[in-house]
């Protein structure tokens, strides 16, 4: 059976290619039909903030890549409740349908996956 992989994205979206490159790992794995999960935590939750306008920085929007996750088979999307609250985001208004997990649930989540990559 294929090994499951959890990708933890901790990078804010517009500070270089890091957030996009973390997403690319997920999209590449999805194309191979691997069991993948993606967790947004720390500044990574800013990737899910609504109404962002990266065009003002002449940057390509991440939204298309984020929206593509379910289409690439990456259906398990999670967000860290602590990180969301700490950054004043409303979990109900995030740009993707995600499961909001507290610290104990996050520990259990990481435990369930065969492999974890934190970027």
């Amino acid at each position: 059976m294929a090994k499951s992989l959890l990708i933890i994205s901790r990078q804010a979206p517009w500070s270089g290619p890091s957030a996009r490159e973390a997403l690319d790992i997920a999209l590449a794995g999805g194309a191979f039909d691997l069991p993948l999960g993606m967790l947004f935590m720390d500044d990574g939750v800013f990737q899910l903030a609504a109404a962002q306008q990266p065009a003002s920085l002449q940057l390509k929007d991440l939204a298309a890549n984020l929206q593509a996750l379910p289409m690439f088979g990456v259906e398990k999307l999670f967000v860290c409740a602590h990180s969301v609250a700490e950054r004043g985001l409303d979990p109900a208004s995030l740009s993707l349908p995600v499961e909001v997990l507290d610290d104990a649930a996050l520990a259990a989540l990481i435990g369930r996956y065969d492999q974890v990559v934190t970027l």
């Binding site: 901790r10 935590m41 720390d42 860290c80 602590h82 990180s83 610290d103 996050l106 520990a107 259990a108 990481i110 435990g111």
Partner: peptide, 15 residues
Amino acid sequence: DNRLASCLRLLGTDD
């Protein structure tokens, strides 16, 4: 840097 703090928050009991 908050990596250590974040890690400690979600550290499993056998991690």
